[in-house]
Write a protein that binds this DNA or RNA. Structure first.
Lengths: 353, 353
DNA sequence: TTGTATGCGTTATCAT
DNA sequence: ATGATAACGCATACAA
């Protein structure tokens, strides 16, 4: 007789064992099995042992989905970021993932690709039960459009949300940011203290909140040191792609002795152009960037930069979110939100004096 | 009278509408609502319109979890990679995410952190119903231990698995790799053709399959050009952390005129050391690395490198997985597995002649 | 055309 | 000590 009973097949290969399977085999009820596996006092030691042994043998594991449906909690966190091939986001993500994992949460990640529409679609997909809460950083388009209805809908449904880095005042929720303005101020101050006066700012369009805050720090530092702000000393670059000719033009037209860049790729490009134009770094021109990635560490000369401590940022964001997820909000209690500010650090390397 | 009926509260803020809610409000059965929303022919145009209007008004969205439980399909893909702050993996991940998303799948990501135990734990967490299949690249420890039971268990349960880059012959499943040996051969050939003869290989321990394959290509190229293989010309570095003194020692002890590195960080470090020791790149020493990341592009001199086309790799892996996920395996049909090989490309920059 | 019943895998409540 | 039942939200085979 050929061995092809359904039992054989389904137990040896394929299909996970369920409570029902165990109940059937052991000729007890499903609820008995359930309780036995939870070591309930209600069940006799005898049955418990039998059930547990059987469960172990057949490698029983409760089905996450069924539990999620029952508990209305998935233990999944949704993360939406503009880009994954990007040192800063990647670093934050590591912090989120590590912390979430340590608390028994998994992370579902969606990439908005700097697009408003994708951000909306991704949020909607995940909001329908797949996750317990969101951690996100706004896409460029979203910041530009200033449209946050998708965030509002989510929070109105009672789904916790934590924004990091690229945040907005329009939405009431927990937030994690760095002290952009202060650290930009400190960076410019450092340049000034080393004798530089003609300091450029290389930035993205100002609808990026972080860029705006960094620009404020830049201007404040100039003002406090009686250096008049010069609009011509600000170079605005697209956040995507390189604008080599624009950079070249900028450094040809302006006499500059120091540069503050809002990210490290801008800094590397500027550095390359400055060197190409025959100026020495840091003697002729000093440079400071944001984002302490590989580029900053390994460029020649290495780059003085603002470390944003992304991993810490991610861990804190995850912690804030899980706290919200796990605390029941009392009926009439007002929800309270915090904005956590991470202290950035200036890492001095060879591109400054 | 104070407005605080349960209805108000639950509809205005919090809680998603369910079929049951709609059914209750409209005084029809749940199945009628379900069918109406699917535009079933069975239902009268009248009710359909009523139901659909109501659903739209209350922004009804089916609950993913419930659907997953019913269909035994989550439309989630589990991705397990050794590290997320790593250009290559990040690139592959982007490919996975984009393709998966276009097919309506979400991606749950877990990081093994090069640890065997974390890899096992993560797999088990996800295997209990959270995902329809896995895409993964083996952790360093897993490769070292040569223990793949966790993979076996998963495949025996009928959960599709696709391995990429860091794969193993021990497991039968779909795989995506690059032609490591051939491209390493081509790289070394290029160095030889430019007149180099004393060619070093800077690599990781050989339990990394990719390193092994690249070493084979390296040796084959030497052999085919009558250059004797010299064990002393191979520098083995730890995959984590920098071994500056080891590198310095290596280049002090050996006369080298070209280097092939199995990743770009190794290449950057070698480049720095070579320059520090007063040699010129590429005149005195040529360098070729693997992984075409930002470092290779922006280093000075820029780095000739092997582009692994991670994004394509990811997209193909996702495609293979989803295909397996979505095709029902016939009762007696033997499962068949493919190994897809991506053609790497040599990108020539300034570090070679 | 509409509704009832059943099941997905689990847990909790309430019998027995 | 054990089991039946309902419920989570949805889909569907099968009545009516």
């Amino acid at each position: 007789m050929i061995c092809s009973s359904d039992n054989q097949k389904s137990s040896i290969l394929k299909r996970k064992t369920t409570l029902k399977d165990i109940a059937r085999e052991l000729d007890v009820s499903i609820s008995t099995v359930s309780k036995a596996l939870k070591n309930s006092e209600e069940i006799s030691t005898d049955t418990k042992e039998k059930v547990q042994a059987f469960a172990k043998l057949y490698n029983y594991r409760p089905n996450n989905i069924a539990i999620s449906l029952k508990n209305k909690r998935t233990r999944n966190i949704g993360v939406i970021i503009p880009d994954i091939v990007h040192h800063f986001f990647t670093t934050v993500f590591r912090g989120i993932e590590k912390y979430a994992n340590s608390r028994g949460y998994n992370v579902i990640i969606c990439v908005s690709d700097e697009s408003f529409d994708k951000e909306v679609i991704n949020m909607e997909m995940l909001a329908n039960g797949s996750i317990d809460g969101f951690i996100m950083s706004l896409s460029a388009e979203t910041q530009q459009k200033n449209d946050f209805n998708h965030l509002k809908e989510v929070t109105e449904q009672g789904i916790p949300l934590v924004l990091f880095d690229r945040v907005t005042d329009e939405i009431e929720c927990d937030k994690v940011i760095i002290n952009d303005k202060e650290i930009a101020y400190a960076a410019v101050k450092k340049l000034i203290d080393s004798g530089k006066r003609k300091i450029a700012l290389v930035t993205t369009d100002s609808y990026f909140n972080v860029s705006k805050r960094r620009a404020e720090g830049y201007k404040a530092a100039l003002a406090d040191n009686e250096i008049p702000f010069d609009e011509k000393h600000v170079l605005t670059l697209p956040y995507r792609g390189i604008a080599k000719t624009k950079i070249e033009h900028f450094f040809n037209e302006n006499v500059i002795d120091a540069v503050l860049c809002v990210n490290e790729v801008f800094a590397i490009h500027c550095m390359g152009m400055i060197q190409k134009l025959g100026m020495k770094i840091p003697e002729d021109v000093s440079i400071i960037g944001f984002t302490d990635g590989l580029l900053s560490r390994y460029s020649v000369p290495s780059l003085t930069t603002v470390a944003q401590h992304g991993e810490r940022m991610g861990a804190i964001a995850a912690q804030m979110l899980i706290e919200k997820v796990e605390t029941e909000i009392q009926e009439n209690e007002e929800e309270t939100y915090r904005t956590e500010i991470i202290e950035a650090t200036l890492i001095e390397r060879e591109s400054t004096i």
